[in-house]
């Protein structure tokens, strides 16, 4: 694997994005803002304080992670699928010295970059509006990247296994939406039946949300060893799969 070649693929996606970002930025930006303000301000009026935080303060750090998750996911499902199947960008790239693994690496890194962009936008907004005050907020950024790599990998796996572009609905409805809702963004998970809150331990987004919330309010103790082990576990488990599965899908 030549990382420079992977960078060329990343650069191609960045070049296209620079041309089109006005349309997609608004869309990806609007949705998390909608959650933040509709729930934070609307629902927040009816919700008592959670662990000493107002409702908008409680959900804001989580929205950073969910918007980062969705940014990587949209990119590496619909985006990658269109490049592979409809625009035949993969065909064009593979006729050059870029090899298949480098191409997949470029897609993965680009997905993670989208996460970083959208995660950082939400982070800046909540800082500017004074929702979050701790300087430790800066340490959320590396975890936004972790979030990006995990969900870019998961999405590329989905891209490799779906029979057609419409099937991504299953991926979003059956996998991403439950992960999003049961991640502790909107309510503390210990209010759920025991079995559900135990299952939520395996939700990578739950750990990312809890870490983000910890840093946003200066509680570094929220970064537990079990969270780190689980996230590293997911990284090791998920990242090799797109390389194998996409190759299989593409060559047939």
């Amino acid at each position: 694997m030549n990382i420079k070649k992977a960078f060329r693929v990343w650069q191609r996606n960045a070049t296209v994005y620079r041309k089109l970002y006005r349309s997609s930025l608004a869309l990806n930006f609007f949705e998390p803002m909608l959650y933040l303000f509709a729930f934070g301000l609307g629902l927040g009026g009816f919700v008592r304080e959670i662990s000493g935080m107002s409702y908008i303060e409680f959900i804001a750090p989580g929205i950073v992670m969910s918007s980062s998750m969705f940014a990587a996911s949209y990119e590496c499902t619909y985006g990658t699928y269109v490049r592979m199947v409809y625009q035949k960008t993969f065909d064009a790239i593979l006729a050059t010295p870029v090899q298949f693994n480098e191409l997949v690496m470029g897609e993965l890194l680009w997905g993670a970059t989208k996460s970083l962009i959208y995660g950082c936008i939400i982070l800046s907004v909540i800082s500017v509006f004074g929702v979050v005050k701790s300087p430790y907020i800066i340490f959320v950024i590396p975890f936004v990247i972790v979030c990006g790599v995990i969900f870019a990998s998961l999405s590329l796996i989905a891209t490799a296994v779906v029979p057609g572009i419409d099937s991504f609905n299953y991926f979003y409805t059956l996998i991403l939406t439950p992960l999003f809702l049961f991640s502790g963004i909107f309510f503390p998970l210990d209010s759920l039946p025991k079995i559900l809150s135990e299952l939520a331990f395996f939700n990578p987004l739950m750990h990312l949300v809890s870490i983000s919330r910890g840093f946003c309010y200066g509680e570094i103790s929220k970064l537990t060893l079990s969270s780190l082990v689980l996230l590293i576990g997911y990284l090791c488990l998920l990242t090799p799969l797109p390389f194998m599965l996409l190759r299989k899908k593409y060559l047939h």
């Binding site: 060329r8 650069q11 191609r12 296209v16 089109l20 065909d91 064009a92 010295p97 870029v98």
Partner: peptide
């Protein structure tokens, strides 16, 4: 398999990069 979102120039520049 041109990049439909890019200009003529951009298509060639992007492709040239794959060859360094």
């Amino acid at each position: 398999n041109l990049d439909p979102d890019l200009s003529v120039l951009e298509n060639l520049i992007v492709y040239a990069r794959y060859f360094d």
